[in-house]
Structures are given as C-alpha cells and as structure tokens.
Simulated scan of single mutants.
Amino acid sequence: MSQPRLDQIDRRILHELGKDGRISNAQLAQRIGLSPSPCWQRVRRLEQQGVITNYCAILDQVKLGAAEIVMIEIVLERHDDETLETFGNRMQKMPEVLEVHLTTGEYDYLIKVAVDGTRGYEEFLRRKLYHVPGIRHSRSSFVLRTLKDVQAYLPED
C-alpha cells in the first residue's frame, strides 16, 4: 500500500491535531490559515486515507491509582502460532497492559504496564502474568521518569 502524499497544509493539520485532538475545526482552520470547509475536508481525507486512525484522551495514571510504569521484556518458550496467539489474546485482556510490542533481539516482546507501586506490580505478576502459558522468562524495569512521550512521528518531506 502506497503512502498518501502529504503537503505542508496536511502536515500542519497533523501537527496541530497531535498537540490537541479536541481542537474545533474553526480553531484548526484559523491556526493553519484555511477557511473551515477546506480544513474539514482535509481532515476527513486524512481520516479516510488512514493517516489519522483514532482520537483519544490521555489519562493521568497517578490520579487513576496506577502511577508506576513497568517495562517488561518477555521470552516465550515456543514461537508456534498457538503460543503467539494465546500470548497476544491474554495481553489484550489485561487492562494494566498499555502496550505490547513484538521485538527482535534477546527478548520476544516488550510490554508496558501500569501498576500501583511494587505491591501492585507483585500482584500483577503473581495473579496475571505468571498465569499466561508459554512464558519462559521475563525481566522488568520500573520507569523512573518519562523524558518524552509522543504518540506519533511525522517525518519531514
């Protein structure tokens, strides 16, 4: 599938929506220097092309009671279809799991988990992760501070 051609106006729209996904069409049009109708048409085209895939709220994990983020590297026992499918399905069902990435290298997966401190982490391991069949080994690191957190990268032309 070919990549859609993005001009500078499309890029400015994406940049503004990346900063504030709730911006009104009128405000967006004003910021990028278009009238509202062509701005709305461009946003709809970007959605239809799949460049914009979703809009979401960024939640404050501290206020929700799961302030600690843990990155967990996972090694599976086997790499057959059944093991991979089971692992993926189980990860989808765990609300604490924020991201799951199939990776190259020493570990098969990198998962990002939100927990409530070390006790919450222990509970997650003992009650959930360790019950997933097919996991041979895991290694965890607590995130001490996040220096950058963006949802997408917009390559230059």
Rank of each mutant, 00 (worst) to 15 (best):
M1K: 08
P4W: 04
Q8E: 14
D10A: 07
I13N: 01
L14P: 00
L17C: 09
K19Y: 15
G21V: 10
R22A: 11
S24K: 09
S24E: 13
S24D: 14
N25E: 03
A26C: 11
P36H: 12
Q41N: 12
R42Y: 05
V43R: 01
R44S: 02
R45S: 00
Q48T: 04
Q48P: 02
Q48F: 08
Q49V: 00
G50S: 05
I52R: 11
I52P: 15
N54I: 10
Y55N: 02
Y55G: 08
A57W: 15
A57F: 15
A57Y: 15
Q61A: 09
A66W: 14
V70E: 01
V70I: 04
M71C: 11
I72A: 09
E73K: 03
D81I: 11
E82G: 00
E85N: 08
T86L: 13
F87H: 02
K93P: 10
P95Q: 03
E96F: 13
V97F: 01
L98Q: 07
H101R: 06
H101Q: 10
H101Y: 15
H101F: 15
G105D: 09
E106A: 07
Y107K: 03
D108S: 01
L110P: 00
I111T: 01
V113Q: 02
V113Y: 00
A114Y: 15
V115H: 03
D116K: 08
G117Q: 02
G117S: 00
Y121L: 12
Y121G: 05
F124N: 04
L125I: 07
L125F: 10
R127I: 06
K128V: 04
R136C: 12
R136W: 15
R136D: 13
H137M: 11
S138H: 13
S138V: 06
R139H: 09
R139G: 05
S140L: 06
F142M: 08
L147S: 00
K148G: 12
K148Q: 10
P155K: 02
E156I: 13
E156H: 11
